[in-house]
Design a protein around this nucleic acid. Structure first.
Lengths: 265, 265
DNA sequence: CATTGACTGTTTGTCAGACAAAGATATAGA
DNA sequence: TCTATATCTTTGTCTGACAAACAGTCAATG
């Protein structure tokens, strides 16, 4: 009697609420380009008229829009249409990774590959200005080699500079959160192993040299060594690579890293 | 006169609203584990008491939480705490990629690398059951080789199966949206080039064989060939790889792909 | 003339209270 | 014990209101 119902293939009923409908329509309008980037969205009162719902409903829909990064707060109160930035993607990824028990190993494996790709791509198209930035980064790292926090920050920046130089926006979006999460758990490595910093600087110099010389193979080789070194350092410092990242990163650290300079992709 | 002000480094003032504060606190509670996964969040009335704000404010905060994927609708009306799933990450990435003018080339370069990584990782730990699924997928593709839509779907599934078999959650989250976007623009390749499907099937068979034989190198080689083939096919079919993906994918197609089977990560 | 300051209307953020409908729970009847 | 009904909770939406922040105008001031 009941059995047939179990075998019946049905789609779950999606109870669409009004505020979700408001969100979907505004989302479509933005993706379609009907709401121009940089322009403010209509006023709440205006949206009320358009959708024939009350302000409370409109506002709840706008909150969904806000959190998805399709509108941001400009100087005034009005919300202006904008493209979701890397920071928001990173936030999303970090939340998902933390709660889904992603391990340090998981992150590292992917990051290792993407860094290599970034090196390869960067070789061909890196600009002199970007090369300068890399050189400057290395110089700063050498100067502040005894300031663990500064070293971590500069290491993150080094990798981010290479990713930027690769000129691949998809890569930038994909790698950013990995880098943030991975390096958020680096501090104990740098602080506990004196040589770690020195090895890091040496590796950075090699990678820089290879990219400058437009030698993708060498760049990839050294970057990979650098990443392997990183893992070895973590393990020597007592990290279990199969532990979920939530074990390594406290939320304060993460929040600070996330709120660092945001780069438009 | 004005110059000094321009050089003064100041941070823009962020006017924190109450509903954002509600969101942040609930977010923290979830990430910290104070609100257990699978449990419903407190009722709106309860939250009003806790935060000393009115229901409208609480509700707007909850909308932010909802859109970030930290709560989902269960069977009832109550919102239950949950980890953001791959689908949500994909939605976010797709929005960001579309609006930031990510090109087909960008996507393809990253996807190519991640597919290779997935193959390498899958070799070591793939289960017999997962191998069976791959074999079954290939068989189905052969059967339905003349149904373009089915072929695309099965191709997507093939790559997803390999990613799953790689057992790396970070990889899964990173690759999923790339796959969706990339294959959302494949249909014209398959429909215009008769041989495309045949070459695809052949490549899939090779990759499957290599993974089954636990031969990472061969698996990567064939997967890479497969990806290169894909690009060549697109270009032969008239696609300009440097065009933003928005040019290739219409929103309806995308919506359908996104609403396909969601897999928990 | 450029700047400042006050005035005005608009828009947003928050509050207060209300009600219908959908779920959840309890209660009575088989 | 199980089922069906009644009752209570909770959510989604509406109504109306108000203070604070913002944009614009326009006169006063140096």
């Amino acid at each position: 009697m009941k059995a047939p119902l179990m075998t019946l293939k049905v789609e779950p009923i999606i109870a669409n609420t009004s505020y979700q409908a408001v969100f979907r329509q505004l989302e479509s309008a933005i993706l379609r380009g009907d709401l121009a980037m940089g322009e403010p969205i209509p006023t709440e009162a205006g949206l009320c008229d358009m959708f024939h719902v009350k302000r409370t409903t409109v506002r709840e829909g706008i909150r969904l829009l806000e959190q998805s990064g399709l509108v941001t707060r400009g100087s005034g109160r009005r919300l202006i249409v904008s493209a979701p930035d890397a920071r928001r993607s990173s936030e999303n990824f970090i939340r998902a990774a933390t709660l889904n028990r992603v391990t340090l190993q998981d992150l590292w494996q992917v990051e290792r590959e993407l860094e290599a790709l970034a090196c390869r791509l960067a070789c061909e198209i890196i600009t002199p200005a970007q090369l300068d930035q890399l050189a400057q980064n290395i110089a700063q790292t050498e100067q502040q080699r005894h300031d663990a926090k500064a070293v971590i920050r500069l290491d993150m920046e080094f990798h981010r500079l290479i990713t930027d130089a690769a000129g691949n926006r998809a890569l930038a979006v994909a790698r950013d959160p990995l880098g943030i999460l991975l390096y958020a758990s680096t501090d104990f490595v740098v602080t506990r192993l004196e040589q770690a910093t020195e090895r890091m600087i040496a590796a950075h110099r090699r990678v820089y040299g290879a990219i400058r010389a437009n030698d993708p193979e060498q760049a990839v080789i050294w970057m990979t060594k650098h990443m392997d070194d990183f893992k070895r350092g973590c393990i020597m410092a007592g990290a279990n690579f199969d532990d979920p990242i939530a074990n390594f990163v406290d939320h304060d650290t993460l929040a600070k890293l996330l709120n660092q300079k945001t780069r438009a992709i």
